[in-house]
Amino acid sequence: MGKLTNFKRSLWVFHASGGSCNGCDIEIIAALTPRYDAERFGIKLVGSPRHADVLLVTGAIPRDFADKLKRIYEQMPDPKAVIVVGNCGTSGGLFYDSYNLVGPIDEIIPVDVYVPGCPPRPEAIIDAVVKAWLKLEKLEKELEGKKE
């Protein structure tokens, strides 16, 4: 991984669970606990999308959650990145033929990083956040370029 030159701050993550089985969600929390300790990289879960750089989404999005997810995405400041954690958000996975699901997530909001797995391991989730970091670095550069 190269050096970060433009995005020079801790990465704040907002986590939204949209109809997942909870498996991915506990692994996200497990990534924060002492064994994996994502906070040592400055990665932190925050309580509001308005403070977040990265949106972590799990699940295949039930019917009435789609507009809420859009609103969460719109509330986030630029530059922002979206990570989908788990198979069901990526492709529908096991829940491919439900009457109440409207996923996959990339049909609702733009997605930057996919983490396959049912559920993915905490290491994979941290790796995805690092990948999002690189994306943010690029976006930040573009934003600064516009300013000049």
Partner: peptide, 21 residues
């Protein structure tokens, strides 16, 4: 109901081993 996925409905269309998973 914010995570209602209709699992029972899906299970009634699949075979028993798929439903187990």
């Amino acid at each position: 109901g914010f995570a209602h996925r209709g699992i029972e409905y899906m299970g009634m269309k699949r075979n028993a081993i798929q439903t187990l998973y």
